[in-house]
């Protein structure tokens, strides 16, 4: 009995020392080495791919934002809008609605979003694409589909006093195809598109 207690304690002590040594290797040296390489070689990416306008950071290229009228939860017609987000694009509350594909609450939300998007952009409901009426997985999806950007062109052009052709060209220039031609989906980065729009409109 006494002997087995001693043996167990000895084994636990050995295991603890092993854990501590491996913690130093994999939990301290490894992340520090990777951070060092990352900060030196890929400084921008390692720090969040931040985007600046007039020297001020206005967001991360990778993190979606809300484009509502300041201080309200109403979408601002002068900006391209992103996908619905149940957290209002708060990066400290990522995640999705978690509603099942036939859940009555999701059915209701999709129907309402479809009506709202169609009315807001002055297009028939049949032209509203799927990404415009569904919440993303992260709630901070930075992208929309090219189709969703296209149905917003007329409304955005009118609100900014720009020609439809000019805004259409802007969307075209900011449409990214699949990575390497076949990886992922084609998309439009909303923040980058809106920054270009701001420059074009000169406001």
């Amino acid at each position: 009995m006494n002997n087995s207690v001693v043996n167990t304690a000895r084994l636990a002590w050995a295991a603890l020392r092993m854990l501590l040594v491996l913690t130093v290797v994999t939990g301290v040296l490894y992340p520090l080495a990777v951070t060092g390489i990352g900060q030196l070689a890929f400084h921008d990416q390692a720090n969040g791919s931040m985007v600046k306008v007039d020297g001020q950071e206005v967001g991360s290229q990778l993190i979606g934002q809300s484009w509502n009228i300041e201080g309200t939860d109403k979408p601002d017609p002068k900006w391209f809008q992103g996908r619905p987000s149940h957290s209002g694009y708060d990066p400290l509350a990522t995640g999705s609605s978690q509603l099942g594909a036939s859940d009555p609450r999701l059915v209701k939300a999709v129907k309402e979003a479809k009506e709202q998007v169609a009315a807001f952009n002055g297009v028939p409901e049949s032209e509203v694409p799927k990404d415009a009426v569904t919440g993303s997985a992260s709630a901070i999806d930075p992208d929309i589909s090219p189709a969703y950007a296209q149905i917003q062109v007329k409304r955005v052009a009118a609100a900014n006093g720009l020609s439809t052709e000019a805004v259409e060209k802007l969307v075209e220039d900011h449409t990214q195809g699949r990575t390497a031609g076949f990886l992922g989906e084609s998309r439009v980065n909303v923040l980058e598109l809106n920054i270009a729009l701001k420059e074009l409109a000169g406001n």
Binding site: L99, G100, S102, L106, P129, V133, T134, D143, E185
Partner: peptide, 25 residues
Amino acid sequence: AHPGTASQIAGGSMEGKEQRFGEGP
């Protein structure tokens, strides 16, 4: 095929998915 009721109305199974990935990936 997105047979779910809400997905049918939306026109695809994009709830809880990111635009850059889409349904396939």
